[in-house]
């Protein structure tokens, strides 16, 4: 790692000010992606602003309609929250499937969606449940948040404060994990929500996306067989040593059916 200046932020405003006044400042949540990236010298910020001490960014609150999760809430906290398990079991189960226990103890929901790794799990939930990303500047609809590989709607220095998930009627997340890292080769969140059926796919493309043909097919008949006639094109899907685009397209169909079946 190249040398950098470390700062501990006291508050969201303090973090924003510290990033703004740095030459090339970066926010740090748990560091679970940032530090490996810096070790590989793929990132070399002049200043790192640690959000770890900003208590207002961590925590979960649940109302009748919404599960709100602070940006600095760890995957472990979401996976083991009795309230999340009760309100949106699919979200707790998704969090429990991320990486390994040590990654879940440090990795955060804010860091995960800000990073927008094509194989990350949480983008599937933000899109599939129609969540809203609340930053220090504005509210960003989940549908507008993920813009490309590692690209989001966030402006430089903009800080995610929390993610608001509307509680769906039912939802399930199923993934085909990479057996080494547990990242999604393909993951599908299927949900019946107040605003209709949503099917979001992660792992398969440059970033998470909605599979609208499946949503239409499921709107009239929310059952796995409704997806029988829906084909997924491999065009534009990821291909790597783990899976070809054709295989990923196939997996989208299989994971989507399993997710719908798991909704019960």
């Amino acid at each position: 790692m190249y040398a950098f200046t470390y700062h501990k932020a006291e508050s969201v405003a303090d973090a924003a000010a510290k990033v703004a006044s740095a030459d090339d400042g970066v926010l740090m949540a748990g560091g679970m992606t940032l530090l490996p990236t810096m070790k590989q010298r793929l990132a070399q910020p002049s200043d790192v602003v640690d959000l770890g001490g900003v208590a207002s960014l961590a925590g979960i609150s649940v109302t009748a309609e919404t599960v709100s999760i602070g940006a600095m809430t760890t995957h472990d906290a979401v996976a083991n929250s009795a309230e999340v398990k009760q309100a949106i079991p699919a979200l707790a189960s998704l969090a429990s499937s991320i990486g390994d226990p040590m990654v879940r103890n440090r990795g955060t929901i804010g860091g995960s969606i800000a990073n927008n790794d094509p194989a990350a799990d949480y983008p599937g939930a933000v899109l599939g449940l129609g969540a809203t990303v609340v930053t220090d500047k504005r509210s960003i609809p989940g549908d507008d948040f993920f813009q490309g590989m590692f690209e989001t709607a966030l402006e430089p220095g903009e800080i995610i404060q929390r993610i608001d998930f509307p509680i769906p009627k039912k939802a399930a997340y199923v993934k085909f994990p990479n057996p080494a890292s547990r990242y999604a080769i393909v993951g599908v969140m299927a949900a019946e929500t107040a605003s209709g059926v949503r099917v979001a796919v992660t792992g398969a493309g440059p970033c998470a996306f909605r599979e609208t043909a499946m949503e239409t097919a499921l709107a009239g008949n929310f059952s796995p067989s409704a997806l029988d006639g829906v084909t997924v094109s491999p065009d534009g899907l990821n291909a790597d040593i783990h899976a070809s685009a054709v295989y990923r397209a196939h997996l989208i169909g299989v994971m989507a059916k399993r997710a719908v079946a798991a909704c019960g």
């Binding site: 470390y6 501990k8 560091g31 679970m32 530090l35 490996p36 640690d50 770890g52 472990d76 226990p101 040590m102 990654v103 103890n105 440090r106």
Partner: peptide, 18 residues
């Protein structure tokens, strides 16, 4: 792996200052 405030973490992926 070590414990930080009772939680298992990868100490190669955490700064001493954290």
């Amino acid at each position: 792996t070590v414990h930080v405030d009772g939680k298992a973490v990868k100490s190669c992926t955490m700064l001493a200052l954290q």
